[in-house]
């Protein structure tokens, strides 16, 4: 069976993924593919994903030269094999194509607190605006009827909450919704949906959470002052 050669255009160039097989056959399959689609490949920058193939410097260097005969520049070689990665680095080829992850580039600021990501919005959300965030959402302003907040975590509104809010949208039953005036059109926590009671004349800060599978609202106050 002919080894597989998959080609995909990505931002950095053409990503060519080579399947398993005896390396000389794989190389032949690649070169045949290039010869067949000469117009498509012409002048391209190649990123080869060789997966588990273990390649030494001579083999990889030969392939690079063969590619340059076809006017192709080999820019990067991706592999699961540390040997192949080292070979590629020796030849001056890149071994990964995406930006390193932020936590690798810059260590997080030292903090004694374990936290999770929150989005801070310092404006009023008007009808028709929709905010989706995988972490928590904090709003300094009002959430008007017709506005929607969908959060993976908690939702805190320092203002009037009158729109639709879904906290714990990924299914977290521990999520809470707090607001200075908790009068949402509809409130959802995890899989539970609740409709707020009729608005009160004297609103007070409240926190909604799940208790025994029901959405309940409790006064939102300093601990010990309830």
């Amino acid at each position: 069976m002919r080894p597989s050669v998959q080609i995909k255009g990505i931002r950095e160039g053409l990503l060519v993924t080579l399947g398993e097989g005896y390396w000389p056959d794989v190389q032949t399959a690649l070169l045949e593919e290039i010869a067949q689609k000469a117009d498509f490949f012409k002048g391209a920058r190649l990123i080869l994903d060789v997966e588990n193939h273990i390649l030494n410097a001579a083999t990889l260097g030969k392939l690079r030269d063969l590619l340059s005969d076809h006017h192709l520049s080999l820019w990067a070689v991706l592999s699961h094999s540390p040997t192949t990665q080292q070979t590629a680095q020796t030849l001056g080829l890149a071994t990964r194509i995406h930006q390193p992850r932020p936590e690798e580039a810059a260590p997080a600021l030292p903090s004694e607190f374990e936290g999770s990501e929150a989005l801070l919005l310092r404006r009023t959300l008007r009808s028709g605006s929709r905010v989706e965030h995988s972490g928590h959402v904090t709003v300094i302003g009002d959430v008007n009827p017709g506005a929607e907040i969908i959060a993976g975590g908690d939702v805190v509104v320092w203002g009037r909450l009158r729109g639709l809010v879904h906290a714990g949208a990924d299914g977290d039953p521990e999520a809470v919704v707090c607001a200075l005036d908790l009068s949402p059109t509809q409130l959802r926590i995890a899989g539970q949906i609740a409709i707020a009671p009729a608005p009160r004349s004297q609103p007070r800060p409240e926190m909604a959470r799940l208790r025994d599978g029901q959405v309940v609202a409790e006064p939102w106050s300093l601990p010990g002052q309830e």
Partner: peptide, 12 residues
């Protein structure tokens, strides 16, 4: 009023 609120957001 609901529609006005939407429009105000669009105007902004």
């Amino acid at each position: 009023v609901r529609d006005a609120d939407r429009i105000i957001g669009l105007v902004e």
